[in-house]
């Protein structure tokens, strides 16, 4: 009964929304701010990845917010799961030899790959968030493989906080020296397609990469430690 009613009303809403999307032409060219972002993206940023220039520079405030969101989630999660042996009754089983061996091999490569992603955020697809997630996935691999693996929460918190402070601090530096928060004109933009280009963007993204990596790792650790027996 509930299913029928739910489906009925979902269909109604769906039809209305579908009628909207039927009026939006798919694949037609865009007008508006994106024209500016695309056309002048290289001129103003010197970074190849236009999405990164938008994310970190034009709409850097959103990214600051995003970073805060992730920080909030990690803090909130560790707050809620503080010393909670909630899932005590679930034991973790010993991982197989295949997994352990693969992890030993892959983990450093994963770290390297993740670092590559966030360092080259302004040149290739990706950036701080993507790179950080990759690093965290490596850490998760370690958790899966070794039941005795612990992370150093103090270190993670410190990295997390320092990285966040760096980001906001860079913004304030911009406010002081260039009259606007998160201004990118503090250091030189460099040359297009080179590693050291796009001004502050790589620095911000590196900070973000560290932060996200640390945060997601801490997140995973907090969840897993609800099962562990000590």
């Amino acid at each position: 009964m509930r299913k029928i009613v739910a489906i009925f009303f979902l269909t109604i809403v769906g039809l209305y929304m579908l009628s909207l999307f039927a009026q939006i032409p798919f694949g037609k060219p865009y007008k508006g701010v994106s024209e500016h972002y695309v056309e002048r993206g290289i001129v103003e940023n010197r970074g190849s990845n236009l999405v990164t220039s938008i994310v970190v520079n034009y709409r850097g405030f959103d990214t600051l917010g995003e970073v805060t969101v992730l920080f909030l989630a990690a803090t909130g999660l560790s707050f809620l799961l503080f010393s909670c042996k909630c899932l005590r009754e679930f034991k973790r089983i010993r991982s197989s030899l295949v997994l352990r061996t693969a992890t030993d091999t892959l983990f450093p490569l994963i770290l390297l790959f993740g670092a590559y992603i966030f360092i080259h955020g302004h040149l290739t697809p990706g950036g701080g968030f993507q790179g950080g997630s990759v690093i965290a996935s490596g850490v998760m691999l370690l958790f899966l493989a070794y039941r005795s693996f612990h992370v150093n929460h103090k270190a993670l918190s410190t990295i997390e906080s320092l990285a966040g402070i760096t980001f906001a601090g860079i913004g304030l530096v911009g406010l002081i020296y260039a009259k606007s928060f998160l201004a990118n004109s503090v250091i030189s933009l460099g040359q297009w397609n080179k590693l050291f280009s796009a001004g502050l963007i790589p620095f911000i993204y590196i900070a973000v990469g560290f932060k996200v990596g640390a945060e997601l790792s801490g997140l995973i650790s907090d969840m897993i430690s609800t099962t562990k027996e000590d």
Binding site: G65, V69, A74, L80, C84
Partner: peptide, 20 residues
């Protein structure tokens, strides 16, 4: 990009609430 991260954050919060 931003929306995905936010989605992850909310999922994490929800899961921690469920664990509790």
């Amino acid at each position: 990009l931003t929306a995905i991260v936010i989605g992850v954050a909310v999922t994490a919060m929800a899961l921690s609430v469920v664990i509790r």
